[in-house]
Write a protein that binds this DNA or RNA. Structure first.
Lengths: 145, 145
DNA sequence: TTTGATGCAAACGGTTTGCACTTAT
DNA sequence: ATAAGTGCAAACCGTTTGCATCAAA
C-alpha cells in the first residue's frame, strides 16, 4: 500500500485525491470489486467522483502493472484485483464470491513445461476453479446438523 | 455432429433450418467463434437470419449441455466452444487466437484434491494459458533464420 | 387453431469518448 | 500560460427483450 503510492510517485504519476482514493480502496479490498462497487464506495467521501475517473485510474494502474483485471466477470462486469501477481481464483457457485487461491503446480504438471503443451509456448497460467467457498461449505454442513 | 442433431431431436427440440445452421457451423468450427462470426457466416446462406435467433439457439444448446461459452472473451465478445467437456484454452498473445488444450493435472497437483484447496471444494477447473501458438512460434523462428 | 420459432427494432447496461472546466505547475 | 486531470453526458457496442409475423403440428 505505502509502496504502491511510492512507486506511482516514482513513475511521475500525479497523485490526485481521486487516484489516491481508488488506489487505497482497491488495495484494502479482498473481494475483487467491480467499477461501480469502487465508484459507489468512493462517492461516499467524494460526492463528485465520476465513473470516468474510476475507469481512467484503473486503466493507469493496470498499465503500470500495479493491479490486474480478471479474465472473468461478475454478472457481466469487469472485476479488479489489487494483486497483479500470478495466482488463481475460485468462483463460489453458491454466493458468487471470487476468492484468491494460491497454489503452485507440481513440477510434473504439463503446464509447468512452459515450452511445450501441444506445441504452444506457455508464459502464464490463470486457473479458474468453480466450486464452493469455505463459508458456504460451513453453512451446508451446519444445515445437515 | 450427427449425434448432436440426434440428441436434439430426442430432447424434443424443433429442428428449424436456422438452428441446424448454427449447430452445424459451430460443430465444424475450431476457433471458438463469436456471435457475430456465427451470424455473418450463416447470413451468406440465410440472408434473413437474425442475431436474436443466433443468441437464442446458442442459449438453447448451452442449456442442453451441447456446447459451452468460454469464461473469457475475444475483444469483449462472448465466444463459444462446440466441445462442452472439460478442457483448457491457450490465448495466443501474437495473433489472438484461442486454442483448445488438452491435458490432465497429475494426481499430486493441489487442484486434484477436489475437496480442499484453501478450504474450498473444487468441482471444476478451467485453465487459461497465455502464450504463443505453434503457428506464431514457427513464424518467429523462421524470421530468426 | 394453437403453439412456438423467427426477425426486427427498441431497450439495456457496462464501458468509452469528447469536451468544457478545473487545478497545479 | 501550459499541461494534465476531472466530471458530465453522449456515444458505443454487445446482448436482451417485446412484439408482430410466420410456420408447423
Amino acid at each position: 500500500m505505502k509502496d504502491i503510492i511510492a512507486r506511482l510517485k516514482e513513475n511521475g504519476v500525479t497523485l490526485t485525491p481521486q487516484r489516491m482514493a481508488v488506489t487505497e480502496f482497491l488495495s484494502r479490498s479482498r473481494n475483487h470489486p467491480t467499477v461501480d462497487e469502487i465508484h459507489r464506495n468512493i462517492q461516499r467521501r467524494y460526492p463528485t467522483m465520476s465513473v470516468a475517473t474510476v475507469y481512467s485510474t484503473l486503466k493507469l494502474l493496470k498499465e503500470l502493472g500495479e493491479i490486474q483485471e480478471l479474465s472473468i466477470r461478475k454478472r457481466g462486469k469487469a472485476c479488479f484485483d489489487p494483486n497483479p501477481g500470478l495466482h488463481h481464483h475460485l468462483l463460489c457457485r453458491k454466493c458468487g464470491k471470487i476468492l484468491d487461491i494460491d497454489f503452485n503446480h507440481p513440477s510434473n504438471c504439463p503446464i509447468m513445461a512452459k515450452e511445450s503443451i501441444d506445441g504452444c509456448k506457455v508464459e502464464e497460467v490463470q486457473a479458474y476453479l468453480y466450486g464452493i467457498c469455505p463459508e458456504c461449505l460451513k453453512k451446508e454442513s451446519d444445515k445437515k446438523g
